[in-house]
Amino acid sequence: MEIISKENLVYRPSELLTGATFNFCPGCGHGTVVRLVMEVVEEMGIQSETIGISPVGCSVLLYDFYNIDVIQAAHGRATAVATGIKRVLPEKYVFTYQGDGDLAAIGTGETIHTCNRGENIAVIFINNGIYGMTGGQMAPTTIPEMKTSTSPRGRNTDTMGYNLSITEMIARLEGAYYVTRQAVHNSAAVRKTKRAIRMAFENQKLNKGTSFIEVVSSCNSGYKMTPLQANRWMEENMFPYYPLGDMKVNGVLKV
């Protein structure tokens, strides 16, 4: 580090990362979003006021990477856990970080009701269209025809139902104050996602409702592709179902 002079430093990992090696597969979108959250917390100087909730899924070990207080929640229940702690510590910044199986399948009830109550928290939702941790099974977000280990001939919407666009539903809830869909497949998208996360944290000072950020992200291991292929596949196939952009800003619907 010492050989890099200050003026030449273009990037350094957030000091709020512990340095523990990320457990994510190389090329996975999780690694990017996980670091962005700590960059925002560091830049806002709110380490001592921030409590994170980790889900069950590939990001379960957030607490190994983050030098902040973290609660590990049961599968799908992160927003209920966040509600509990935010209600007794209303001055703190509370965020959940959840995958699509966690947030939009087993945890759908908690997700909808937390946002509908307008809990003053940030929800960061990684939509990779698949269950990463358990080995690539179909998720509620799996798009039609997509092959997974439990839809080996592709998602048949007649028998398996349609992919759930939960973020569009959330945007229509009175309690949701900021709802956006972002991605991390290129550096411009990463910068936008970081701005969205910053907004979600800043919003907590206003006490006006839930901030909800979906990040469409690839799971190259689950898709059985190289990281590059996975990102291209995601752009071509997932973005049409999950168009990027803001859905609700400052409580005002954009779509």
Partner: peptide
Amino acid sequence: ESEVAAINMVYGAAS
């Protein structure tokens, strides 16, 4: 919204 949510709210506040 359910007992499942209630006990997980307890988990959060107890934390």
